[in-house]
Design a protein around this nucleic acid. Structure first.
Length: 425
RNA sequence: GGAGAGGUGGCUGAGUGGUCGAAAGCACAUCCUUGCUAAGGAUGCGUAGGUUUAUCCUACCUAGGGUUCGAAUCCCUACCUCUCCGCCA
């Protein structure tokens, strides 16, 4: 949620900034509701004060053994007025909240304005694109030939967009998970093993609900959803809390390996082949809860933490600053890391690292106490994939493939693979 | 799933109809003491909203309804927790 005070101060300016995403939000209704809300609060609260006064007087009289029936009769009218006002108020507040919840975050002022990924800004490229003396094969063909990546079996067991890994691929996926967690542990992230389901309140905190319910798998008959990313449980761990020790330079850092579940509604026909876009995929997620003063710096360093995995695996990638039309609903700035895929002759997203500013934290009620002023303020939240495990496996298959269809195991992973140096036909 | 008990501030825990936003202790902060010394003392210390920004008002004792002039306290519902039984990795 964006700060209502910003809209009060300069609705036009806020609308224009959000408008950089592509469509201008209508903040007029919000502004009207906010004004009306404050009017009703003012009048109903003075009525309540009157009522409290009267009740207190009645109590005194009764205690003194006097008759208070006249005073008691007089409260009836005040009571009616309070009831009417509070009913209108609750309607207005719900309406206002519902509207605020579907307004996206204000994009950072210094990111490129644009309408699609074509307008994203490339910040850097890392690594050598492999010069192959043969036509590179797609990862799913390589996996199929090796007998270790079985799309048909996944479909048989569940439905389309499910894949079963076996043997060396299953082990490689597990090796990647352990490798990533071990790397990030050295950077001070605390490992978390969260629930894989979350309730609607939790999903509202990070912004998936109410607007994007159709992207989630819902558990029938329960207020529970399968998590689309570990961002949801990790960020909401500290929801509704006032953090006592959050200072600049001392962010809270969490990481988790979890499967992620996405309905992929609206992505029909996109990436239907292969292991790139699945209903279920593994991811190691990094989350930071930070002081507002250093969220930008912590965002950069979290992105570097994600990059360090690709560097250790020697996989070529590029770093992209997403434009206003491509960043997510809750984000104010997002750096995407895109890994090179030889069979597609292009870079594909493998990590998305976002700074949400105070947007998620306001929704989730994540605050910290400023030690100097003793006031509470809204914290900032940051998260990023470190990395998407399935897509990393894809990148290894493709970048480490040999002319004969074998796949070399990256050196840093060999200790996690029992010393195995290659996956062989 | 069956039976019972319960949900109060960062924590422990009093409070069963009025002056209770809530005793006490712990923790925390500032200060004092330094022959009670891994201590003693003083003071402060919940969250949010509104506004005429005042040591003013309002709301909040899991959540939502209800009774009452008045509810942390009584009633109903939901959720959650604990104990016992059953089941189970």
């Amino acid at each position: 949620m964006i700060d209502i005070q910003l809209i009060r101060d300069d609705a036009q300016g806020v609308a224009e900034q959000i408008g950089r995403r592509g469509s201008l939000p209508d903040l007029g209704e919000v502004l009207e509701l906010d004004t009306r809300r404050r009017q009703i609060i003012a009048s109903s609260e003075s009525k309540r004060a009157e009522m409290n006064e009267a009740s207190k007087a009645i109590g005194m009289k009764k205690k003194a053994g006097e008759d208070a029936s006249a005073e008691m009769a007089a409260t009836a009218e005040i009571k009616k007025a309070i009831a009417a006002a509070s009913e209108e108020l609750s309607v207005i507040e719900k309406d206002l909240r519902d509207r605020l919840l579907v307004i996206p975050n204000i994009p950072s002022s210094d990111i490129p304005t644009g309408t699609s990924e074509d307008d994203n800004l490339e910040l850097k490229k890392w690594g050598e694109i492999p010069e192959l003396s043969f036509e590179p094969q797609a990862h799913d063909d390589l996996g199929k030939d090796l007998g270790i990546m079985c799309a048909e079996t996944g479909v048989k067991l569940a439905k389309t967009r499910f894949t079963l890994l076996r043997g060396a691929a299953a082990r490689l996926e597990r090796a990647l998970i352990n490798f990533m967690l071990d790397m990030h542990a050295k950077k001070g992230y605390e490992e978390i093993l969260p629930p894989l389901m979350a309730n609607s309140n939790t999903l509202t905190g990070t912004g998936q609900l109410p607007k994007f319910a159709e992207d989630l798998f819902h558990i029938e008959g329960e207020d529970l959803y399968l998590i689309p990313t570990a961002e949801v449980p990790l960020t909401n761990m500290v929801a509704s809390q006032v953090l006592k020790n959050l200072e600049p330079g001392k962010p809270m850092k969490f990481m988790a390996y979890t499967p992620c579940f996405r309905s992929e509604a609206g992505s029909y026909g996109k990436d239907t082949k292969g292991y790139l876009r699945q209903h279920q995929f593994n991811k190691v997620e990094l989350v930071k809860i930070t002081h507002p003063d250093d969220s930008a710096a912590e965002h950069l360093s979290l992105t570097e933490d994600a990059e360090s995995i690709l560097q250790a695996l020697k996989l070529p990638y590029r770093l992209v600053d997403l434009c206003t039309g491509d960043i997510g609903f809750s984000a104010q700035r997002t750096y995407d890391i895109e890994v090179w895929l030889p069979s597609q002759n292009t870079y594909r997203e493998i990590s998305s690292c976002s700074n949400f500013g105070d947007y998620q934290a306001r929704r989730a009620g994540i605050r910290f106490k400023d030690k100097a002023t003793k006031k509470n303020h809204i914290a900032h939240t940051i998260n990023g994939s470190g990395l998407a495990v399935g897509r990393t496996l894809v990148a290894i298959f493709e970048n480490y493939q040999q002319a004969d269809g074998d796949i070399i195991v990256p050196e840093v992973l060999r200790p996690y693979m029992g010393g195995q140096t290659s996956l062989k036909i």
